[in-house]
Design a protein around this nucleic acid. Structure first.
Lengths: 340, 340
DNA sequence: TCGAAACACTATACCGGTTTAGTGTCAACG
DNA sequence: CGTTGACACTAAACCGGTATAGTGTTTCGA
């Protein structure tokens, strides 16, 4: 099946390509009657402008990119990215912009991909996730002059606009909940401190807990189930084990829950568990896991909105996400001082 | 930062655009010395051919598409698609082909997106998933003459090549496992029969169970946790409840496990649970869930390989996935006839 | 009634590649 | 010595849009 071009439409309408272009793009230069006739013909033959030709002509590709630098196979269970992508699509599909999605082995490969994309005019801009403390991507993007939006943290984004969360407020909600249940010694299993979001949350927890007079210890893990379990075991083996543990994602929280049960601990009677980031997973397990729910879909939508503006050359500021909601479930309970 | 074009390279090398094109694409027409000089200059200035110009010229976009017609926000926990995409990327990135990923509200919207993509030369082909018994996408794609590969079922794919599983063999593995544990009455919570993969699995189970002299009942659900729990309740309320239940995905299996525990049932002593499709989720919960593991990443890679061939105009056949592996865990056990 | 402006449209350059036809140089061969 | 052919390269057309300059007709005002 041959795909009709603008020349085909022009021939049928008895006008030139330019007239068709004017009619389709709402430009002045054609009469209302002619415009309607052209539109009808274009619709009838199913004409859609070639994205390649348009891109070549106006220099815009009509696509944005998103690269994740983890191997996607370990990423299956994390709902974060799927939700983020969903939100991005909600906004992009309205504007008929496409999303190029891929993953890279490491940051160097990711930057190389940015260079290629930009040189090839493949994308008009990119979403940057998982910003690290010593992140070379931001500088690379700034050097390229490539529109970009950072998702997840306000720090380290340089001149790039960001969509970010208020970790301090969120932490206050969590600590308030646990303090209200009588917990005095809590722990956190976070991501590696090389990630800005991990570092910021660690700092926030330290501050908030200190203000509340609560003892806190933070350890790090790599977001996988195995690491989560291992970190938990180490925490519980301490002389003064925590009575509640906060996990930086749902997978570690659920894995730790399972491990605690196997070890004969009752949740929440012996140990309270809480997850930063909600998902169906938290609801599914028994007992269900108390979690902080962020509107990740909305974050994606806002990121897409910002990137659209940035790609159009506008000066854009950052966007702060709305506060999270604490989904109180069965895994957090009152601390009863049976033991010590 | 200006992005160098082929004309810039040509000027620096003191040759024409054509010579540069020949040199870069390994075509004859330039001497070895000139070729080397051109390549060096191109490399030095960081020249990458504009994908738009190339697409316009040779009619190939250098991208494939994948549309999922479920809202992505309900899809976060399912590892299937992330793994599939991972496998696809493994193959595509080697060939410098991009993946356009999006979701559509329904099949009509999906078909409309295909039409648009094809008319716009956005993609050179698409991956089709979740084939339905009365699926209009296959006919639409055939009519468009758009290269496509169906993932998941050999039936209903029409003239399109497919990557598919041997449901019969897989079912035999499952039934063999359960029969070996003494189960005589098993149930299956499958997807809706309008999906080919659901229908085929239902048929396969009926046949295999009959041959093994085992009683079987299949009910349908929508793959969500809620439906899985509901279907389970209905099955257990029967006069002759099944002693083992097979779920069509991990989410339903895990949700049912949780629900059974809440209802005071012991797994696997009172009920065995098994999932079609493995994931970290199955390992994380307590007791861990026995599951059939498919190499979904490999399926994605093979699908990408087929689509590459199809897009180049080759006649391609289908590819049958390797057999699955049964991951025997804690949720299946010997049936003890305490009750009846 | 004439000139100017507004309008509707055409002709054409242009984006950055690929590809085909064409040109000039040189070596080989009868 | 003249023809042929291979070689290395140039010139230009082409892909399918958008944008700009230009042209012919109508309308309006003085």
């Amino acid at each position: 099946m041959k795909r009709p071009t603008i020349a085909d439409v022009a021939r049928q309408a008895g006008v030139t390509k330019a007239a068709v272009s004017f009619a389709l793009n709402g430009q002045p230069g054609v009469s209302a009657a002619t415009r309607e006739r052209i539109l009808a013909i274009a619709d009838e033959v199913g004409f859609k402008p070639s994205s390649a030709a348009r891109a070549l002509s106006d220099g815009k590709s009509g696509a944005f990119g998103l690269i994740i630098d983890k191997p996607a196979r370990t990423l299956g269970i994390e709902p974060y990215f799927t939700q983020l992508i969903s939100g991005i699509q909600d906004e992009l599909s309205q504007r008929h912009v496409m999303l190029l999605f891929t993953h890279a082995e490491d940051q160097a490969a990711e930057i190389e991909m940015y260079r290629t994309w930009w040189a090839q005019h493949r994308v008009d801009g990119v979403f940057v996730v998982d910003l690290q403390v010593r992140d070379r991507r931001v500088a690379a993007l700034e050097e390229l002059g490539m529109p970009a939006v950072v998702v997840g943290t306000p720090r380290g984004a340089g001149s790039l606009p960001a969509v970010w969360q208020d970790d301090r407020a969120a932490t206050a909600i969590l600590v308030g909940h646990l303090a209200g249940l009588g917990h005095q010694r809590i722990a956190r299993v976070g991501g590696f401190p090389r990630y800005w979001h991990s570092k910021l949350r660690t700092d926030a927890l330290a501050r908030v807990a200190e203000a509340a007079g609560i003892e806190v210890v933070s350890v790090t893990a790599d977001y996988t189930a195995e690491h989560g379990v291992e970190a938990t075991r180490a925490l519980l083996d301490r002389e003064q084990p925590p009575t509640a543990i906060l996990y930086d994602n749902d997978v570690m929280a659920v894995a730790a829950l399972s491990a605690a049960q196997r070890a004969g601990l009752a949740v929440p009677d012996d140990l309270s568990i809480i997850a930063w980031g909600d998902s169906a997973l938290c609801e599914l397990v028994h007992p269900s896991v108390t979690a902080l729910r962020w509107d990740t879909v909305e974050a994606g939508t806002q990121a897409a909105r910002l990137l659209n503006l940035a790609a159009e050359g506008a000066e854009v500021g950052s966007y702060q996400e709305g506060p999270p909601e604490l989904m109180v479930r069965e895994s957090t309970g009152r601390w009863r001082q049976n033991g010590s």
